[in-house]
Each structure stands twice: as C-alpha cells, then as structure tokens.
Write a protein that binds this DNA or RNA. Structure first.
Lengths: 115, 115
DNA sequence: GCATAAAGCATAGAAAGACTAGGTATGCAT
DNA sequence: ATGCATACCTAGTCTTTCTATGCTTTATGC
C-alpha cells in the first residue's frame, strides 16, 4: 500500500481500537492489522510516536502494568479522546465523500477542443 | 479538514481530473474544489509540485498553449498514467475497506479485566 | 488613467509525520 | 545456547503539504 494514504487515518484508527477497551501498543498494532485484513500494518516507528502524541494531546492516558510477566503500557481514552474520535470519524466520512465526489460520476469525455 | 488525511489522495484526484480531458493546473484545482463540494482545496504549493512529480514519473505530459490570451500549461495522461490511475483507484478502495474494517463492526465492549 | 482582482505559473522554506534501523529487555521453545 | 515472539523506545531520513512570495497578463471598477 501507499503509506502516504495512511497519514491522518492512523490516529483515528488507534483511538478507535483503544475505545474498545484498555489496551497497549503492541496489541493495538496487532488489532489494526487483523481487523483491516492485513492492509494496515502500523510500524513501531509510527505507532509509538503516535501514542505519545495522543497522550500529549490528552486524548489518551496511560499506566504501566505487569501482566503475564510482561511490562506493558496500557492506554485508555479520556473524555476528550472520545470526543476527538467522534470528530475524526465524521471527518473521515466527509473526506471519503469528497473523494467519491471527485472520482464519482463518469463525467464521460467532455469534448476536448483541439489547439 | 485535517490536511494529513489528504496525503496520497492528491495524486489520484489530479490524475482523475486530468483523465476527463486535457486540462491545466488552475482548472484542476477549481475542479477538485467544486466536485468535492469545497472539501478539498488544493493549494498552489501542493498542486504545482505534484504536477511536476507526475510529469517526472511520466504519468502525465504537458504542453504550453496560449488560449484566450492566457498562457497555460496543459496536461494529459500518458498510457502509464491511465494505468496508474486505475491502480490508485483500486488502492483507494482497499484503503477505504481497511478503514471500514477497523471502524466497522461495533465490537461491543470486550470484558475489560481489572488489574 | 489607475488600482485591484482574478487568472496562471513557479519555488523556497517550514512543519509534520511515517518509516528505517537501531537499541533494550523478558519469556519460551528447540 | 539460540532464536523467536512479545514489548517498549527514539534518532535520523524521507516525503509531502502548506505558507508565503514573486512574476506576468487580462478584466473590471472608480
């Protein structure tokens, strides 16, 4: 896939996954990967900086926990994060509609004048 | 809108518009703007570099023409450009499906274990 | 006449974010 | 012992968008 398409959708997807319940970085990447049928594979270099960004923006909050002998940093949405997710989903719908508007109707070959 | 969502879609949209018939930069931006109901407004700093990129990649070819006293650089798709547009459209479909796959089904609250 | 807007092209520089590639550490299976 | 999966992190590179600016010509308003 063209990684450039991904830009901007990453945060929405991450927030979405986190909204389903407390989770952590590694699991988020697995979830996104499997739920998109392998289409998205968030790389660590995108994933962790994005998580830190979301935390800086107070859209998520984190806490360290030791589970099954593994040290994990769990994330959950703040109330601001819930609102942001809603906003981002709407934005996505508008974005997709905008694309469809341009791709949309055949607009069959308008007469092309010669020079 | 979040300009980061735009990434990667720009070239597809431009190729799409050009595929409808020979056109030029200024008109492309107007067309994209109106056909997306104002959602996308390609700025010149994105538009012209992108056109140059497409030309370097041989997806479009250009020629200068003087029309109605205006000096315009007209673009049209090459055969590689036609193929590229098809590919990008499919990629877009896959991308959108991937997003839907993640946003998609409610996945209602999986039990959240306490620590 | 003159100013302003619109049409039209272009680029330099700043800002942002994804990825590569590297690092650290634990648990488990071979 | 060795490798693989889990789990986190970040510096640096690359790409791309946008702001801001500059140039020219034509149309329009005063």
């Amino acid at each position: 896939m063209d990684s450039r398409l991904l830009s901007g959708a990453v945060e929405m997807l991450m927030l979405e996954v986190i909204s389903h319940g407390r989770t952590y970085g590694y699991e988020i990447s697995q979830t996104v990967d499997s739920r998109s049928n392998g289409y998205f594979s968030l790389k660590e270099g995108s994933l962790y900086p994005a998580l830190h960004r979301l935390e800086t923006q107070k859209l998520v909050k984190s806490s360290w926990h030791e589970v099954e002998g593994r040290r994990r940093k769990y994330y959950e949405l703040t109330s601001a994060g819930i609102k942001a997710l809603d906003a981002k989903k709407q934005e996505w719908q508008a974005f997709a509609s905008g694309i469809q508007g341009v791709l949309g109707e055949g607009h069959s070959a308008t007469a092309i004048p010669a020079f």
